Simulated scan of single mutants.
Amino acid sequence: MSTELRTAPLDAVSLDPAVLRAELWDAVFAGDEYTATTLVQRALDDGHDPESVLIDVIAPVQAKVGEEWAANRMSIAQEHAATAINDRAVAALSMHPAARTAPERGRITVACVDGEWHALPARLLAEVLRLRGWRVDYLGAQVPVAHLVAHLHRTGPELVALSSSLATRLPTAHATITACQAAGVPVVAGGAAFGPGGRYARLLGADAWAADARRAADHIENVPIARPHPGHQQLDDLPHLDDQEYTMVTRTRPALVRAVMRGLDEAFPAIRSYSDVQRERTAEDLAHIVDFLATALYLDDADLFTDFIAWTASILTARGVPAHSLPPALDLLAGELKDFPRATRLLLCGAERIAAPRPVSFAPARNHP
Rank of each mutant, 00 (worst) to 15 (best):
E127N: 11
A12M: 06
V257D: 10
A192Q: 04
V53W: 06
A71F: 02
A270T: 15
I354C: 09
L24K: 03
L241W: 10
G66V: 07
E4H: 14
D300G: 05
Y34G: 10
A206W: 02
A208H: 05
L347Q: 05
L304R: 00
E104C: 15
V13D: 05
G47T: 08
H151W: 05
H219E: 11
T38W: 13
L170S: 04
Y298L: 03
C112E: 10
H80G: 02
A98E: 11
A36V: 13
R281V: 12
P364M: 00
A363S: 08
G31F: 12
T344H: 03
H118S: 12
L235C: 02
T7K: 13
A318S: 15
P322C: 11
R253K: 15
K64L: 11
V290H: 07
W209N: 08
T312G: 08
R281D: 05
A43E: 09
I271H: 09
L286I: 06
Q78W: 04
L204W: 02
E280C: 03
P357T: 09
V110G: 07
A150W: 02
L170K: 06
I315Q: 07
V145N: 11
G205C: 10
I289K: 04
R21D: 14
Q181C: 06
R202M: 03
S75Q: 08
A192Y: 02
V28K: 01
A313I: 07
L93F: 08
I85K: 04
A334S: 14
D218E: 13
R319G: 03
